[in-house]
Design a protein around this nucleic acid. Structure first.
Lengths: 248, 248
DNA sequence: CACTCGACTATACGGCGTGAAGTTTATGTA
DNA sequence: TACATAAACTTCACGCCGTATAGTCGAGTG
């Protein structure tokens, strides 16, 4: 019994140190960007030697991989929460809430966004599989939910393009098809395209490319969403001051 | 006279070495990604000492800045050429040609794309001003040309959003307004949004995030363009096999 | 000839990831 | 309690990086 308990204690300490390493790494990332994630800096911050970290992560890339998974999960949580919070709302409202949550998270965590979607750290190459693709898929499924919600009105304008199920990754379909049985292949393609639209605008903004062109990226993103819900055959039904031009 | 000539010779040698440094750096980038651009590796490749490069570039970031400008210019050249090559074509054809040139260049030069739009090199921070923003602006002006070409039909659906000239960077407007006098602020916003759409899809593809979801990014991009020209009030008039659904 | 100046090398510093070996401390057992 | 073991951690070392400083060498000019 005593043996078991002390083993537990060791494991608890180990888990705590692992968490502290991750916490420290994220802190460094927040203040100095993804590049600041170095084993030596983490160890310095923790009062350890850099090599001590090798007892917890086999390599620096392993640590980065875990961090990416964590941060990506946080992003997925944020957008899922926005989606769930508007469960009572209309499609247009929910889609806008989702998209705003996406951008707001990115603006609040630019370094995390760069860690997930950019070249995270000097020589880092993502391994195949793991927790990060799971989070990526969660985000994709979230966008598929947008597409599914709007598919009734969007089908007329987005229904073509000769997509088949074999155009998509089986792992994605395993999650999408059961969740949205009514969504056809073209709907999944629409979801990926919407993802691309939002990702592009946010990426340009986060990386500073947009800032050199427009002074009000907020307005641009808002216009994007207005146009998005419109092109999906929905009418904007939030913020009554906006001109709610009904096109379809 | 002899003095002048030898001065010329020196300058010629100097320019040649500068060009070789840049060429070597781009070669390393092509084989090992932007991270492979290190002064020591370049010097090794050239049979020099790393410090010799400091005679040509004050710092590694200076070299990277120049490389970014060069590569960005190459991208701008590519899309401009596609635009010019279809001067006789219809708006839809030209827009699709431009967008395809953009994606094709990115797929042919993924490392260059990452250099331009990602975190180029470990600690690199872009300086304010310089040649790279010029190339960026050229690309933006190119997209403004797309928007201008299609504005007649697009105004109805994209004309709102209460944009004013003061929402945009003066430097951009200096180039856009003279070139496209008929394009209102909302048209510039449309251009930036289109840029975002294309950038997002291409970025996701280049960085491998799309590959995990769809097996045919080509088809997705094609669908995007089909939908783009449609939403601009144009009809697809290329590749007759495609279903040319006229919506507007 | 001596002088200058540009191109380049040598050396050095601190920082990085990481491997090998050694040390300390806690744990489990006889 | 005494000993063996294993985990946690440190020390030292290697090769990589950017870059600062000082020195070398050769061609051009007076």
């Amino acid at each position: 019994m005593a043996g078991t308990r002390s083993t537990e204690r060791r494991e608890r300490l180990r888990a705590e140190t692992t968490a502290e390493i991750k916490r420290t790494a994220l802190g460094l990332m927040g203040s100095g960007g993804p590049d600041a994630i170095t084993l030596r800096a983490i160890a310095r911050e923790m009062g350890m030697t850099a090599n001590a970290i090798y007892g917890y992560f086999a390599t620096r890339d392993d640590l980065v991989t875990v961090l990416i998974a964590d941060v990506y999960t946080a992003l997925a949580d944020a957008v899922d929460a926005a989606w769930a919070a508007t469960a009572q709302g209309g499609p247009a409202e929910r889609i806008q809430a989702w998209a705003h949550a996406f951008r707001d998270w990115a603006l609040a965590n630019p370094e995390g966004f760069r860690l997930i979607y950019g070249d995270p750290v000097p020589g880092y190459r993502a391994p195949a599989g793991g927790a990060a693709p799971d989070a990526a898929r969660r985000v994709c499924v979230g966008i598929a939910a947008l597409a599914d919600t709007a598919w009734g009105g969007a089908e007329r304008s987005h229904g073509d393009g000769d997509f088949g199920w074999d155009d998509f990754d089986p792992g994605l379909l395993d999650k999408v098809r059961p969740a949205f049985p009514a969504l056809p292949p073209a709907g999944v393609a629409l979801a990926l395209r919407i993802w691309g639209h939002l990702h592009g605008l946010v990426t340009l903004e986060i990386y500073g490319h947009l800032r050199a062109q427009t002074l009000s990226p907020d307005k641009l993103f808002h216009a994007e969403l207005t146009q998005l819900v419109r092109s999906l055959g929905l009418h904007a039904q939030r913020a009554g001051s906006d001109e709610g031009v009904l096109e379809y």
